[in-house]
Design a protein around this nucleic acid. Structure first.
Lengths: 279, 279
DNA sequence: CCGGGAGCGTATCGTATGTTACGTATTTTG
DNA sequence: CAAAATACGTAACATACGATACGCTCCCGG
């Protein structure tokens, strides 16, 4: 998490030192800021050609910026880029200048939501919804220490519109015994964000071996369970808080609940009415 | 610049073909989409390690996408990135919506979040957080049919940073028996959105009579429990779906979790460390 | 139960890439 | 104006990177 510190960006670093640079290196610097940062991600040869200088000049340039070698310089650029792409700078906010802690939190959450859905194609969502709507097989849901409530939330809704939905609770040994009932037609929905739980990984592996289709809700670093998953949903979790946020995954879950419900019309409507009658 | 990239972005290309991919390459695809595009700019070794597959699998993956070799793939990513960074307007990306419902859903959720927080003063949040941080009394959490997972989620976090946090589960008669332990110093957090549950209302009233401080999470039409509540949080729930959305309440819950944690520093930090030691 | 094929990883290879040494050009300074 | 120091490019070098050949494993069909 600490990576976002006041470590001056490379662009600033260049602005600081560009005056004390010799002519060739200055041209390199100008070329870099003009095509920031893509040109710096290419090879030294490309960079040097674009700047109209020689390769060693490029290397001396990055050395002057304080990097040991060219790959280290590139890694720094990539990290910076990654950080930048993750929080697409919500600058439109009308009057966010309140001096408290709620605003950054909500802003970050909004960014997380946007970013999560940006990486999630409608096609993928529909496919997952389709699989979840297929009630020939059983459907199991489970989550980790903090994410199990999400599994529970999803199960509470899906259990209403389709049969054979089970939320796995209790001890690890309890779920494992349910494995005996799982097979190729079944779907297992797992919520697992870091720190990833060994128990879930073991369980996912065993389920996978039995041919169960796994849908994984995880964070952007991907739980090891992604290895066994048929579908992976990667949500952004970073917020200015000691805890990770599951809000993005929650919203994806709600979206899927809605999609599955719609896909099962008019079956689901009839089922709901029938259920009302049983009260 | 002869190589104007293929008109379709690489992300779309992946979405198209991910289904016809073998397991290993699919993992590569998922990893790339989750960390798009930075991981693709690193070396094959880095990429393969992050995805948990071998280098040749990565190369087969990029070959399947239609690239002759890895550098060509990287160049395409770089070009795409350059184009994207130059025209910040075209950030909306990828989702040319068909009759599909994902986009309206996420848009509505974003609106709900903004509206909810617009009507929620920082002062109010801070007061609630303060009350929740006061661990002289006990803290009880409970929710309705669909919202109880939210209570559970909140309890899972708060129970870590302060003592005496209890999530009320099971049958109505079970909670009622806990009333005997509740008094003026205690806090009861209730989640109740329509259709409001009679059992919760009855419970809230009895708790109120005993002087318990009630914090209510409800929808914009306000559960009858608001009558007994010391603090009321009204979240927007309307979305284009057969179900109501609890996302806004979820985010408020996360915000409060963060605020309470911050307010209890350094106590909470010490408590967490201590807890780690017990594992 | 037994072939056949596809998928994947290990190990090896060739090469593109970053690096460095050195000589020439250019600027600086006494 | 001369001499030295700094800057820069050319060319040779070494390494790390991407590419490929090969064999094992797993899954499917006969």
């Amino acid at each position: 998490m600490g990576t976002q510190t006041t470590t001056t960006s490379i662009a600033e670093l260049i602005a600081d030192r560009i005056d004390s640079m010799p002519a060739g290196e200055r041209r390199a610097a100008q070329t870099l800021v003009a095509n920031y940062p893509v040109i710096g991600l290419k090879t030294v040869a490309d960079f040097s050609q674009q700047a109209g200088v020689s390769s060693p000049t490029i290397l001396r340039f990055v050395a002057r910026l304080g990097f040991q070698n060219y790959p280290e310089f590139q890694s720094a650029l990539q990290d910076e880029l990654a950080a930048q792409l993750q929080s697409p700078a919500s600058r439109t906010t009308t009057a966010p200048n309140r001096s408290d802690a709620a605003s950054p939190m909500i802003e970050a959450t909004l960014d997380n939501l946007r970013e999560t859905f940006r990486h999630l194609s409608d096609k993928q969502l529909n496919e997952i919804a389709e699989k979840m709507a297929d009630h020939r097989g059983h459907m199991f849901l489970i989550g980790g220490r903090f994410t199990d409530p999400l599994a529970r939330y999803m199960a509470a809704h899906l259990a209403i519109i389709r049969p054979n939905v089970f939320h796995l609770v209790g001890q690890e040994s309890m779920w494992r015994d349910r494995l005996i009932d799982m097979g190729k037609r079944d779907v297992l929905v797992i919520f697992d964000i870091r720190r990833y739980q060994d128990s879930l990984i073991r369980f996912a592996e065993k389920a996978h071996q039995r041919g169960v289709q796994i849908v994984l809700f995880t964070d952007q670093w991907l739980s090891p369970i992604a290895r066994f998953a048929r579908h992976v949903i990667a949500g952004r979790t970073a917020v200015p808080s000691p805890w990770d946020s599951s809000a993005a995954l929650f919203v994806v879950a709600e979206t899927l609940i809605g999609a599955v419900t719609r896909q099962m019309e008019p079956d689901s409507a009839r089922r709901i009415r029938e259920m009302e009658g049983l009260r």
